[in-house]
Amino acid sequence: GGVGLPMGAYTPPKTIWLPAMKAKGLEISGTFVRRAGVIQMEMTLTNKAMSVMTDFAIQFNRNSFGLAPAGPLQVLTPLSPNQSIEVALPLSTVGPVMKMEPLNNLQVAVKNNIDVFYFSCQYPISMLFVEDGKMERQVFLATWKDIPNDNESQFQIKDCHLNSDAASNKLQGSNIFTIAKRTVEGQDMLYQSMKLTNSIWVLAELRVQAGNPNYTVCLKCRAAEVSQGVFQCYEAVLKN
């Protein structure tokens, strides 16, 4: 984003999800994006076989947050040998739910005229952070007190060279909202909230000390198992 413009959500680079050698010549690389509240799986399909590929379709296994294709996989023309196409598949979060390990794992089946292929990929939990995840300050204080200490996890983010305002702006681009900022003994303490698509709230305290490139983030959540994935998002957003 330019000066004064909000930055967009963090999007990881595309990685190869399905190598051609495991899928009779079909290679799929992809990533996940969230734009204006819409989650999309963006994929590049490449035909590395010697015959034309047609009749593509996609299906997900049940997963932790109910991610499901919101429509068919739009491959409207046959894919010739050595040809690549970009496909964006919008996703909904109201599909069937089953807890996965890790929590953000997604098992996918892709079919074409040759066969059915399976692969697993992992999405950043931040894809699930909704736009109205800014908790009321009063509610934040009460919730923070109410969540038991056993549900608090602490993580270090090493080698981060942003000041607390820049960090706050960057995180807001991914729907991690700063509710309050206090400075105590040279440390900026940012109190932040985010809400997942399944209405799970995560509360955070981010500590930034001037001149110290190591941040500390403490996460409090009633569903403590999401904390590891949320921490990974903090790292990814702040370091990219």
Partner: peptide, 20 residues
Amino acid sequence: EIEDGLDEAFGRLAVSRTNP
């Protein structure tokens, strides 16, 4: 920022977290 004592409450939270 004056908001019916909430800012102060965050201050108390921050201090208690820094000096438990």
